[in-house]
Computed example of a mutant assay.
Amino acid sequence: MSMMIAIIGTMTIYYLAKKVYKKWSYPFFNPLLLSTTVIIAILYFINVPANTYIDQAKGITHLLGPATVAFAIPIYKYMPLLKKYFANIVVSISSGSLVSILSSFVIALIVHLNPELTMSILPRSVTTPVAIEISQGIGGLPSLTTIFVIITGIIGGVMGPYIIKWFSIQSPIARGLALGMGAHGSGTSAAMEYGEKEATFSMIGLIFAAWISLFWVNSLIPSLLLFIRI
């Protein structure tokens, strides 16, 4: 598989998935879920290893950097709102990060995961590059952490808008922070469907979640490690 085929093929599949979702807005037709499923099926039938595809399509991943930097413009635009609700943002994201880590830990205990797998699942609600660093630092498996992050992102990106609708959340700031905290990059993609303000605060939620999770790494997670070893 050549790099051009991998990149163009991925972009084409995602574009078509968005067209399908626009026409039939069912949860299982969400572009993230549908395009991922189609790509996995294609790789399976043409017998291409996942690592080969990831290596050839890494050009798309490199676009995450410029895309993230581009959010500096709308963040600057909404700086007065960011300053006004800064305390609310810190408290809500800190609480969300704490719930994410503790819920992951409880799930790991319930299904009797070994310590290595437990440490791999804890950073699942953080954007991939940061989650990988956290996983390495606490003794997890970065490759497994990546899978958990992707699964969390897809589920959050698919279910997030429906949860927002069910609870009648009208605040653009609350919508954005919830999607960014709960589903990182995938949530930001879903937030873009609402508007610029939601997308901006989703990115803010994603960034704050990464920073605060690094704090939990040095405070909460060592205590969880001791609990596992007892």
Rank of each mutant, 00 (worst) to 15 (best):
F215L: 12
I89G: 08
A41H: 12
L81W: 11
F227H: 13
S223D: 00
A17C: 14
I173S: 03
M1Q: 08
N47Q: 12
G140N: 02
L113C: 13
T36S: 15
L113F: 15
T128Y: 12
Q170M: 13
G153T: 00
V158Q: 03
Y53L: 07
I93K: 04
K197G: 08
V38R: 07
T127W: 06
A6R: 04
A108V: 08
S94A: 13
L179C: 09
W216C: 04
K84L: 10
P161A: 12
K77A: 12
F215R: 05
R175I: 06
L113D: 05
I164E: 01
P49M: 10
T200S: 15
V20K: 12
S223N: 05
Y85R: 04
A57W: 08
Y85T: 00
T61N: 09
L224P: 02
M3I: 08
A210I: 02
M159Q: 05
Y76F: 14
V149Y: 03
A41P: 13
Y15R: 10
M203Y: 11
T36D: 07
S219E: 01
A131I: 01
T152I: 01
S171T: 00
I204W: 07
I107M: 14
G176C: 10
T128A: 14
T37A: 15
S189L: 12
M79Q: 08
E116F: 14
S120E: 00
Y194W: 09
T127S: 13
F71G: 02
A57S: 14
T10D: 03
P222T: 05
I230S: 15
I7H: 08
E193Y: 15
S202K: 03
N51E: 07
I164P: 02
V20S: 11
E193P: 13
M192W: 12
A57H: 10
Y26H: 13
A87K: 09
V91E: 05
N218Q: 10
Y53K: 08
S104A: 15
I204A: 14
S125P: 06
Q170A: 15
G139L: 06
E193N: 15
P161R: 08
F227G: 07
L117M: 15
I75T: 00
G65D: 00
R229L: 13
I46S: 09
W211K: 06
K83V: 02
A41S: 14
L117C: 10
G9C: 07
F148Y: 09
N51M: 09
F86N: 01
N88D: 04
W166C: 05
N88Q: 10
G157K: 04
A174E: 04
M203F: 15
L82W: 08
A199K: 02
G153F: 07
G96S: 05
